[in-house]
């Protein structure tokens, strides 16, 4: 299991290659990359704040749960904080398991939990001003399917 919380840019392709490299015990590797989206064409940057210490332990707990529940061979989570430009990668998850269903489901579970249970907060800076991104009811509801 690898968890990294960092301000620096990461190369999702290189991270995925490194994650998948040299494994003969898995039949499936799934990955997801989240990107800063400029919904209305006026986003200047997205600022991501987090709770150092709790962030790492909360993510580790979520990854541990996914690993146990789906019998993952390995999992990777990278999540950035700081000021990010539109189009920049925010975070990625990767899962490795014997079969694809477990790898897909575990990655989906990780995304749902990282969204609502890892202590990050997004603020959008647009040409019209700054505003905190509100959590959606749908994000909380998504946890219920697990």
């Amino acid at each position: 299991m690898t968890v990294r919380v960092q301000p620096e840019l990461f190369d999702a392709g290189a991270e995925l290659n490194r994650f998948a490299q040299g494994r003969s015990d898995v039949g499936a590797v799934v990955s997801f990359t989240g990107v800063v989206r400029d919904t209305d064409g006026d986003l200047q940057e997205m600022q991501i704040e987090h709770y150092p210490g709790m962030t790492e332990s909360a993510i580790a707990k979520i990854v541990q749960e996914a690993t146990t529940r789906w019998g993952l061979a390995d999992a990777l989570v990278i999540h950035r904080y700081g000021a990010l430009k539109p189009g920049a990668p925010i975070m990625m998850v990767a899962t490795a398991s014997a079969h694809r269903a477990a790898a897909f489901e575990a990655a989906d579970f990780l995304m749902d939990y990282l969204k609502s249970r890892a202590p990050f907060w997004k603020k959008e800076i647009t040409t019209a001003g700054a505003s905190w991104v509100a959590a959606k009811d749908a994000d909380e509801d998504a946890l219920k399917r697990w």
Binding site: M111, S116, A134, A135
Partner: peptide, 10 residues
């Protein structure tokens, strides 16, 4: 003790 709004990670 920490107070914050609902989290918006991912």
């Amino acid at each position: 003790i920490a107070f914050f709004p609902p989290m918006t990670g991912g």
